[in-house]
Design a protein around this nucleic acid. Structure first.
Length: 455
RNA sequence: GGCGCGGUGGUAGAGUGGUUAUGCAGCGGAUUGCAAAUCCGUGAACAGCGGUUCGAAUCCGCUCCGCGCCUCCA
């Protein structure tokens, strides 16, 4: 089995053939930094982190680029609303984003370019587009002229007539064609702006990805990813800009899009009160549980995020960690993840199937705790980015840091219970166990003694 | 209106034209002072209607239902 990827461009699962087998390039659309990342923002981060881990085992070198959008009208609006300086907002939000994603065990990309640091590259690209006859300046704006690109619409599978028919937005007077989109727009005094051949202004939404991906990955690269909703218009417009500016037929060879999140069966929205930021969820659930939960469905499917689901993911991880603790004395061999597990991931990141392999490994390990199986289990888990932390920290930290008992009192009560058991005073022993249970502490007796964990 | 995706057992969620997904929950058993953890066993599904086929939950068509996108939302 080799890596196969569902390509939005062709609507088929295809064998992945990198342009250069020694160095795979991947670009994923990153956050606009104006507010905490919500749980839906976490899905692509986790999914492409798993892909990155997998690619690194398959290829010598992988370059993963994920941008930070720090110039955007939503940021401007936020600043106007709170009075906070724009730079302060973007710096603080980017930092929070990194912390939250780290808690989800998602590593940083190799390169994380910021839009504001690549204005010159964007202006350069826009000038090329004008020179090539694909863009025009009007009213302080620069617009991409969609009819100048006959192939426009290939990614999203739509044609111009459909779009005009379905258009529900007023068409600005300076547009030559209703489908034309903004590359550059003028900035009023109180809005961030940069000097340009078209006056003081700021870039449109799509141009940063075209400019920055070209700078770091070249005119054509392997994989471009992002949320399903970005297919149109964002990615469609990126393709138009890049192919016309670079005079190439292909921008990215493989387009991957993750499905959206629902919350408790409903669309996540602030008004419904089911809007969760990663930041607030991390206060009640370990990031690893959120990550594992997200991976329980294939990345292209819509995902219904529920609190019950998170709890189940957490207790499943408990099972794995409990087994690892029980056989703490077994030293894991340095082996690769088993082939069926790899094959599942290579099949368009079939993480649910991969997880079922993980369960099989767990069963084998419980039956026969040997170094080989433990090594395989940990190697497989590493690719998913789970089961890498200290077993005691996981089991004793749990999700209830606030349950109010400290470790020394727990140890003391376990000692008391041990005495009671030695005296065959089972009523007293059970009373202690019940008391601890009420505090969220579960005891596990074994021949080696008693261990505990938080629920 | 246009384009696209999906409907699998109590639940979450894979999958293949004919043979057990897997987890959770349930039921029975082993183990345990009793539990917990673990192990063994077990029931249960492929939205509906047609078609192709020796055979379809898996391919095709239609119907019903749900969802997404259609200019700045991952």
């Amino acid at each position: 089995m080799t890596l196969h990827i569902y390509n939005t461009l062709t609507r088929k699962k295809e064998e992945f053939k990198p342009i250069n087998p020694d160095c795979v390039g991947m670009y994923v659309c990153g956050p606009t930094v104006y507010d905490f990342a919500h749980i839906g923002n976490a899905r692509p981060v986790i999914v492409f982190d798993v892909l990155y881990r997998l690619l690194k085992t398959l290829y010598k070198d992988v370059t993963y680029v994920r941008n930070i959008t720090d110039v955007d009208d939503k940021i401007n609006a936020k600043s106007k609303e709170t009075g906070e300086d724009i730079r302060t907002i973007t710096e603080r939000t980017a930092k929070a984003f990194h912390e939250d994603m780290a808690a989800l065990n998602a590593g940083n990309p190799d390169i994380e370019p910021r839009a504001t640091e690549h204005i010159a590259e964007m202006i350069d690209m826009i000038e090329t587009l004008i020179a090539n006859g694909n863009a025009y300046a009007a009213d302080g704006h620069v617009l991409f002229h969609v009819p100048s690109m006959p192939e426009y619409g290939a990614l999203s599978g739509r044609n111009m007539d459909d779009m005009i028919a379905g258009a529900r937005v007023e068409v600005a007077s300076y547009k030559k064609d209703p489908a034309d989109f903004v590359l550059w727009k003028p900035s009023e005094e109180d809005v961030p702006g940069w000097e340009s051949p078209w006056g003081r202004g700021r870039p449109g939404w799509h141009i940063e990805c075209s400019a920055m991906s070209r700078k770091y990955l070249g005119n054509t690269f392997d994989i471009h990813g992002g949320g399903h909703d970005l297919i149109f218009p964002h990615h469609e417009n990126e393709i138009a800009q890049s192919c016309c500016a670079n005079k190439t037929e292909r921008f990215a060879n493989y387009w991957m899009h993750n499905g959206h999140l629902m919350v408790e069966g409903e669309k996540m929205s602030k008004s419904l009160g089911n809007f969760f930021t990663v930041h607030e969820l991390l206060e009640e659930v370990p990031g690893e549980a959120l990550r594992f939960y997200m991976l329980s469905a294939q990345y292209r499917s819509p995902f219904d995020f529920t609190k019950d689901g998170v709890r189940e993911a957490k207790s499943t991880l408990d099972r794995f960690y409990t087994a690892l603790r029980q056989h703490n004395d077994v030293v894991a061999s340095d082996v690769a993840a088993p082939q069926p597990f790899i094959a599942a991931l290579e099949d368009d990141l079939n993480t649910p199937l991969a997880i079922s392999q993980l369960h099989e490994l767990l069963g084998n390990f419980n039956k026969d705790p040997n170094p080989q199986t433990k090594g395989q289990l940990l190697a497989a888990a590493q690719l998913l980015g789970i089961l890498q932390q200290d077993v005691e920290v996981w089991l004793k930290g749990g999700s209830q840091e606030n349950s109010g008992v400290d470790e020394s009192s727990i140890e003391r009560m376990i000692e008391e219970r041990k005495q009671a058991k030695a005296n065959k005073d089972f009523a007293a022993a059970d009373r202690i166990r019940d008391e601890l249970d009420g505090l969220g502490i579960v005891l596990e007796d074994s021949a080696q003694g008693t261990t505990w964990k938080r629920k």
